[in-house]
Design a protein around this nucleic acid. Sequence first.
DNA 1: CCGCTAAATGAATGCCGTTCATTTAGTAGA
DNA 2: TCTACTAAATGAACGGCATTCATTTAGCGG
Lengths: 237, 237
Amino acid sequence: MPAVSAAEGRSTSIGGAQRRRAGRPSAAVLDKSGITAAALELVRRKGYDGLTMAALAKVLDVAPSALYNHVASKQDVLLLVEDHLMSLVDVSGFGGGSWEDAVCTWAWSYRDVFAEHTPLIPVIAVLPVTDAPQTLAMYETVSKGFLDAGFPRERIIPAIVALESFIFGSAYDVTAPEDIFDSGSMAGSTPYFTAAVRSAATGQDGTAPGPERGRQADAAFSLGLDALVSGLGALRG
Amino acid sequence: MPAVSAAEGRSTSIGGAQRRRAGRPSAAVLDKSGITAAALELVRRKGYDGLTMAALAKVLDVAPSALYNHVASKQDVLLLVEDHLMSLVDVSGFGGGSWEDAVCTWAWSYRDVFAEHTPLIPVIAVLPVTDAPQTLAMYETVSKGFLDAGFPRERIIPAIVALESFIFGSAYDVTAPEDIFDSGSMAGSTPYFTAAVRSAATGQDGTAPGPERGRQADAAFSLGLDALVSGLGALRG
DNA sequence: CCGCTAAATGAATGCCGTTCATTTAGTAGA
DNA sequence: TCTACTAAATGAACGGCATTCATTTAGCGG
């Protein structure tokens, strides 16, 4: 798995950015892990709008059509990225310590990872887990953690799904713009809502400058996670 | 607001599907509510993949560019659709009865509406509420319901956001394919997860045929919603 | 040596959102 | 009543996108 860098094929003349001539090169230029790494780097630099097959090919110094020797579609690239990200989710808490702490550590890191990658959420939600080994590994660790904590077998998956649903939704919330709840010119006809938004923005005393958007998202996530953890925890035998 | 149907401009000859000649027609053909209705109908018939500006124009018997006299972009069309859907969410429970019942009615109907329209979820999550009157109206009713139930002002928005996050995530779950948790050939290396999936699919006794996907999604939603409602309900003064 | 397959190029396709010049209809003001 | 101005339509065009296909080349198994 030579990933990105490989021996350069002979090129026609001077300079570093030379065109490769047609035909199969002596050493393969592309492989799945290289494509994944390039896609992640591209997303980091240009965001998901910048992740096009053409741009990906350019980063890898390859013609766009060459990518299709290794992936079947752009969706396939997204799946590779998604599965890689799953390996970044922290499941270490399930090794020891309380179930509550393990779930919270897992949930926060899960949310944080996908808050930076919300365009993948629709992909995850729809794609079978079959050819996503990292994803499968995460589910395995979490399932075992729930079982060891005394969950009845048939409630484990529903509980995980409920938590994941909350996590995905909350990941979107992190990226919401500052003024998402600004009722603007219609504030007059929504007095309760407008007051509630102001209270949430300024905190208990109406004087403080109030938290910025990220902290507000954290507050909502914390609130919901605590409720879910205590509610689901009660299911244990 | 004549919506879809309007007096037909004089056309050049026979037949119903005649081309309109260039230039402003005597009676306007398009307006926002007509565009919204046509978009919804198109989505119902062809799904969100079928919702293109060209297809929308065809349904409305108009050139694609004509749409841009009434909306600034396709995102704008999606916002119109989204706001319309918000008016379908059932907030009637907040008129009387217990807070718990009202929240559950609201949450279930909210999830059901957007389970059929998951491609809008990324739009909702990012778009300010400012020019979405139906959405604002929903938030107003719900905010008032929370306040009347004794919620402290500064906790109302975080609680609603937490519930919404769960609802959006759960809407995706409804549309997930039957075999989403099929570990396939890697089942051997994920024993706990595989067993948990089987238990969830067959129910407490391992014999029954087990619920189909929609019921499983309902079970997870019910579990999470109960936990959230009881956890959040404890915040009331 | 021969044929098969894998992996690259480069040209081409079709769709999609959007823009622009143009035409026509109504309307407000001199 | 002429005259701008604006609103609302057409139709041609554009650039970008994912994807496909014919072609070329390299290595490998018989």
